[in-house]
Amino acid sequence: MTRPPDASRRNEASRRAILTAAFELAGELGYAKLGVEAIAARAGVGKQTIYRWWPGKGAVLFDAFLMLSEDADGTSAELPDTGDLEADLKIVLRATVAELNDPRIAEPMRALTVEVATDPALAAEYAERLDEPVRELKRRRLRAALDAGQLAPGTDLDAAVDAVWSPLLTRWLLRSGPLTPEFADTVVETALRGLRP
């Protein structure tokens, strides 16, 4: 006896195909030329399937990034904590530099950043589903350093997160200079000079 097709499996396969297509096409065509029609054609689904699940291409691209981060989570999401805050932050920021310099990731991510800046609904979803959970991981690592006496008492952890990570993102987004591992190290050293007791 043959089983009827599993609709949830088919839906998950279609969802993944759509998200993969959106991510790939954003890198190949650029966000301005990316359209729901092209995503649907690449994914082998109808446009109505995409519009049933997402309000537009920005929301599709955001979910594509979430899918990538879920797929990459074979390792712990926690930031490294070897007891050496400077070394740990340099490892994390150097990995961030490598990711932001990867054209397969950088162009879709830059497009998503622009979309988040212009779409309040997408910005709220981005803050809730991605930015705040990632910020909490960063705060948690800095809180451990604060508890260990490696940061000045009373350090504002949100301001510290911004001091460590924002220079990389600003330089990347505005293309205002080379994004190198050496720059990442300098950012960590400079930020920690102001944050240490």
Results as ranks from 00 to 15, higher is better:
residue 23 F to L: 14
residue 57 K to N: 03
residue 68 L to W: 09
residue 61 L to R: 04
residue 22 A to D: 04
residue 62 F to Q: 03
residue 44 G to W: 04
residue 34 L to I: 04
residue 54 W to V: 03
residue 24 E to S: 12
residue 67 M to V: 09
residue 37 E to L: 11
residue 50 I to L: 08
residue 59 A to W: 10
residue 46 G to C: 13
residue 58 G to E: 07
residue 34 L to S: 01
residue 37 E to F: 10
residue 30 G to P: 02
residue 55 P to V: 01
residue 58 G to I: 06
residue 46 G to F: 13
residue 64 A to Q: 04
residue 74 G to Y: 12
residue 73 D to Q: 14
residue 38 A to W: 04
residue 29 L to W: 08
residue 55 P to H: 02
residue 45 V to R: 00
residue 65 F to V: 09
residue 71 D to I: 09
residue 54 W to D: 02
residue 22 A to G: 06
residue 28 E to K: 12
residue 59 A to P: 08
residue 39 I to P: 00
residue 22 A to F: 03
residue 34 L to A: 03
residue 40 A to I: 10
residue 69 S to P: 08
residue 62 F to P: 03
residue 45 V to K: 02
residue 72 A to K: 09
residue 37 E to D: 15
residue 35 G to E: 12
residue 32 A to V: 11
residue 68 L to Y: 06
residue 47 K to W: 07
residue 54 W to G: 01
residue 25 L to T: 04
residue 49 T to S: 14
residue 49 T to H: 11
residue 64 A to G: 02
residue 56 G to Y: 05
residue 31 Y to P: 08
residue 39 I to Q: 02
residue 60 V to G: 01
residue 42 R to C: 04
residue 67 M to R: 13
residue 47 K to H: 10
residue 60 V to W: 00
residue 42 R to F: 07
residue 64 A to Y: 03
residue 51 Y to T: 05
residue 36 V to A: 09
residue 56 G to E: 05
residue 42 R to K: 12
residue 39 I to K: 02
residue 74 G to K: 12
residue 57 K to P: 06
residue 66 L to P: 06
residue 63 D to C: 10
residue 25 L to A: 03
residue 29 L to R: 13
residue 67 M to N: 10
residue 26 A to P: 00
residue 67 M to Q: 13
residue 24 E to Q: 14
residue 37 E to V: 13
residue 52 R to H: 15
residue 29 L to V: 06
residue 53 W to C: 10
residue 30 G to D: 02
residue 54 W to Q: 00
residue 28 E to S: 12
residue 25 L to Q: 01
residue 58 G to F: 08
residue 74 G to L: 14
residue 74 G to R: 11
residue 69 S to E: 15
residue 52 R to Q: 15
residue 58 G to S: 11
residue 25 L to E: 00
residue 25 L to H: 01
residue 36 V to F: 07
residue 47 K to D: 11
residue 59 A to L: 08
residue 57 K to G: 03
residue 36 V to L: 13
residue 55 P to L: 03
residue 56 G to M: 01
residue 74 G to E: 12
residue 39 I to W: 01
residue 57 K to W: 06
residue 48 Q to V: 14
residue 68 L to I: 14
residue 41 A to L: 11
residue 45 V to I: 05
residue 71 D to Q: 14
residue 36 V to S: 09
residue 70 E to P: 09
residue 50 I to C: 02
residue 47 K to A: 11
residue 31 Y to R: 13
residue 64 A to C: 02
residue 47 K to P: 07
residue 73 D to G: 14
residue 61 L to G: 01
residue 65 F to C: 07
residue 25 L to F: 09
residue 65 F to E: 06
residue 43 A to M: 06
residue 59 A to C: 09
residue 47 K to E: 12
residue 48 Q to S: 15
residue 41 A to F: 09
residue 55 P to A: 05
residue 27 G to W: 00
residue 26 A to M: 02
residue 53 W to H: 15
residue 49 T to N: 12
residue 65 F to Y: 08
residue 65 F to R: 01
residue 52 R to L: 15
residue 70 E to R: 13
residue 49 T to I: 05
residue 65 F to I: 04
residue 43 A to T: 07
residue 74 G to C: 08
residue 49 T to V: 08
residue 39 I to G: 01
residue 47 K to L: 10
residue 66 L to S: 08
residue 23 F to Q: 07
residue 41 A to W: 07
residue 23 F to Y: 15
residue 31 Y to T: 15
residue 62 F to C: 05
residue 43 A to D: 06
residue 29 L to Q: 08
residue 56 G to H: 03
residue 51 Y to W: 11
residue 25 L to N: 00
residue 39 I to R: 04
residue 64 A to N: 07
residue 49 T to A: 14
residue 64 A to T: 04
residue 36 V to G: 09
